[in-house]
């Protein structure tokens, strides 16, 4: 299983792997917002948590279709399915690799972009925490969507349509944590709920994804 993780990270980092693509996209989206809404600091700091979360969501979406589609094209997925590693483990490791190459850089870069969005200083910590707790759910749900659309040519758009509605709970609670943190309110309730969403998806979705993959491989 560790072999799958290291292979996927290596593939992402090497040429054409798309590592950093999500991060660059996140950067550009967030930089564009102040241009669009104007430089008024109070307005920017109000919308900052929401914009940062939307940016993270879209950046995450960008590399989702690569999770299984590439392996399907070159035949690796068939071979992985017949290997001793359970397909559930393959899915979990691939989702983890996706999080390490996409979600983790977003978490690290978020404070820098918070400055651009005039996010209040108290909010930085909670923004990072909310992203760190929430992005694993984005990768796991995304892997499920990728498994659903794996057999479809150019399934990327369909994947976005399927996955974005499933991101809603994570977005609501994640942005709420960041917003409450920035305004000095109590963050405990949304943070607990955000963690719960992540725990449930990480625990259940690999099984659903593996079942879907088995059907798609037929």
């Amino acid at each position: 299983m560790i072999a799958i993780l290291t292979r996927d990270i290596r593939l992402a980092v090497r040429a054409g792997g798309g590592f950093g693509l999500g991060l660059a996209f996140f950067l550009i989206v967030v930089v564009l917002v102040p241009f669009a809404v104007g430089p008024e600091v109070r307005l920017l700091s109000t919308i900052a948590p929401g914009i940062l979360w939307i940016g993270a969501l879209l950046a995450c979406l960008l590399s989702l279709d690569r999770i299984f589609a590439l392996d399907r094209e070159d035949g690796s997925l068939d071979l992985l399915a017949t290997s001793p590693v359970p397909l559930e483990g393959v899915v979990a490791m691939k989702a983890l690799a996706h999080w390490i190459t996409t979600g983790l850089p977003l978490v690290v870069a978020a404070p820098v972009l918070g400055v651009l969005m005039s996010l209040p200083v108290e909010g930085f910590r909670w923004l990072v925490i909310s992203l760190a707790v929430g992005t694993p759910a984005l990768s796991t749900i995304g892997a499920f969507g990728a498994a659903l659309t794996v057999g479809i040519k150019r399934g990327g758009l369909l994947l976005s349509l399927l996955v974005l509605p499933l991101y809603v709970p994570t977005l609501i609670f994640g942005a709420e944590v960041a917003r409450a943190g920035a305004t000095g309110l109590d963050v405990e309730t949304p943070l607990v709920l955000l963690g719960a969403v992540t725990c449930v998806t990480v625990a259940l979705l690999p099984f659903a994804s593996a079942a879907v993959l088995r059907m798609n491989l037929r």
């Binding site: 292979r7 290596r10 593939l11 090497r14 040429a15 054409g16 792997g17 392996d71 094209e73 070159d74 035949g75 690796s76 068939d78 071979l79 017949t82």
Partner: peptide, 13 residues
């Protein structure tokens, strides 16, 4: 173990 038409080779490795 199964060997298909596609070899399951990663080009960048």
């Amino acid at each position: 173990t199964y060997a298909a038409h596609a070899d399951g080779i990663k080009a960048v490795l």
